[in-house]
Design a protein around this nucleic acid. Structure first.
Lengths: 337, 337
DNA sequence: TTGAAAGCGCTAACAC
DNA sequence: GTGTTAGCGCTTTCAA
């Protein structure tokens, strides 16, 4: 089992050519006679030779890696974005080097340093809030930096995202138009999930701007918060603010948890209380009733980010200035409101 | 922005020491005076120096990568396993290099080759079915190979998983004990999702072994199949096999989709039809009614795999023979059956 | 405790 | 179309 890996030298020896010829046989557009190339490839396959990318990376100073940080792998949103990003980059022969920060900026700092050691050609981070040292490392990295899922005021370089706060203003408007005024909010009470916190802030600002009471707030604890937290938060809501006509949840998973709790308690949705979420998760479109939500188009964030990176890398010596791509979100009205 | 990255040489120059001393200053247990080390670290941070892992990898012939292939990133099961694997390996200073095959063995072959080029120190693949060339590449790689989420008859080397077929026998027994005999199955009709197909086969075998009719089978199409497919499959089930007393779905997501379709149609669960799933997804425990399911302990698969890898790598020159770790699954009875 | 030389496996650049 | 030389940024080895 544990044979040491074959090198080009072994292949060259077996094929009675120079190492350079073997190298050329493995490149697309290099001058080797087709006969030689074919012969070398067969011999290489026979020997079980596998190209050593680490050596090539060092020599060419190109790794074909794009580093990506997400708060959590196990989150359908980030998985969608990373999947789309990965697929788009693959078409250009690039790979994603993924790391997760556990919703913690300090851990993100460690992660970013670790990723930069691998010499990625670009780096994508989720969110617009980082430690000072993270910012400095990213600025000094000498590679394109993209912040996603947010629209920070002072971006590090490029941005592909949307305003989480603005989506909540949209949702408040929708509910108000439906005749509701006593609207509550569940989640976003910790700064770990900065995007969730932004949505809560957006909710409060939007309510106040419309002269409505923005104090019906229910916490849900540390991220990742999900269905179970939504169910228990709804219980608390019914207790603390029994007059609420509607509740906006920090995500669809929380909203679904709240919905099931209503069903258990015999509270009718939307007649007794309307429920809205965020994220356009699959469950929002299939639960009974379906859940009113915001679609932030996670896959689009991924493809747009990939396109931006490829464009910037393609343009010799980064002639393109910092880009700010705002992704449009949609409000999906549904049975729950 | 686009300054070329600093090297140890730059740091050495600035600190008036040799490159070797800088190298030592960045290693844990090497002989440098604490004063020199501290001075070098400060100068390096000042210069914005970031250690180049690709160069070190080449020289030491160690990458600290473990390669992992999953069918899809956007799947809570595989995300759980990868997350746990990643966290466990991180404690030993190793990183995960992740790739997704899109439920396609041909794409898996391409992916495995691509990953092996990065010279990982071990490779983890999801599932036990691969192309011949994939098997050959993995055998020849000279690194530990672990197949997960399955219990293949002819493993490549190590295995950490369970029998998908056996879980379905367990579910059939559970439903039979509840007095049901006319049991249907939704999903697993394509070979792309080999584990889903195994569960379907396990269902058929278990039914036949108990002298029951195993012909109530509903297809659900190409993976990834999820809630929406479950909803439409349930419609087909009610049409094709109106006498079914229970239905086992290839996953909880499908089961939930089926459940919502029942709610839309006014079919009572479990009185009119019982529903069971697979996977112990969060939704199974929170939907109303909750869904009877199998918990395959995805995170445990990840931690056990990590432990196995670390143990094998630690044991000089692979003194450990092929391991076969069977992960126990649990049946979680719930309101839906 | 520190430094000098050599080389990991590949490829750019230049010869022929 | 093919070969030779040199070197990417580190670390192993040996010497001081």
């Amino acid at each position: 089992m544990q044979h040491s890996a074959k090198t080009m030298k072994d292949v060259a020896l077996a094929a009675r050519v120079s190492v350079m010829t073997v190298s050329r046989a493995f490149k697309q557009d290099s001058s080797v006679s087709e006969a030689t190339r074919a012969r070398i490839r067969i011999i290489a396959e026979d020997l079980g030779y596998v190209f050593d990318a680490t050596a090539a990376n060092l020599r060419t100073q190109k790794t074909n890696f794009v580093a990506v940080t997400v708060p959590s792998i196990n989150n359908a949103h980030f998985a969608d974005t990373v999947g789309a990003l990965s697929d788009s980059l693959a078409q250009a022969g690039m790979e994603v080097l993924l790391g997760h920060s556990g919703y913690d900026v300090a851990q993100e700092e460690v992660l970013v340093e670790q990723l930069l050691r691998r010499r990625p050609e670009a780096i994508v981070v989720t969110g617009g809030r980082h430690t000072e040292r993270t910012r400095k490392m990213l600025l000094n990295a000498g590679i394109p930096v993209v912040e996603t899922w947010d629209l920070p005021d002072d971006p590090i370089e490029h941005v592909v995202g949307f305003s989480n706060a603005a989506t909540m203003a949209g949702m408040v408007d929708y509910l108000v138009a439906k005749g509701m005024a006593r609207i509550a909010f569940i989640g976003g009470d910790t700064d770990s999930d900065t995007r969730g916190a932004d949505r809560r802030r957006g909710f409060v600002a939007a309510m106040q701007a419309r002269g409505l009471d923005a104090s019906r707030l229910i916490g849900a604890g540390k991220p990742p918060i999900s269905m179970r937290e939504g169910a228990s938060a709804l219980g608390q809501l019914l207790n603390d603010f029994p007059d609420a006509q509607a509740v906006i949840c920090v995500s669809d998973l929380v909203a679904f948890g709240a919905l099931t709790e209503c069903q258990r308690r015999g509270v009718r949705v939307p007649q007794d209380i309307a429920i809205a979420g965020f994220g356009a998760y699959e469950i929002a479109g299939i639960s009974h009733p379906t859940i009113t939500t915001i679609n932030p188009h996670p896959r689009l964030i991924g493809t747009q980010t990939a396109e931006l990176i490829l464009q910037v890398l393609d343009t010799a010596s980064g002639r393109i200035g910092p880009q700010r791509l705002e992704i449009n979100w949609d409000l999906q009205g549904a049975e729950s409101a």
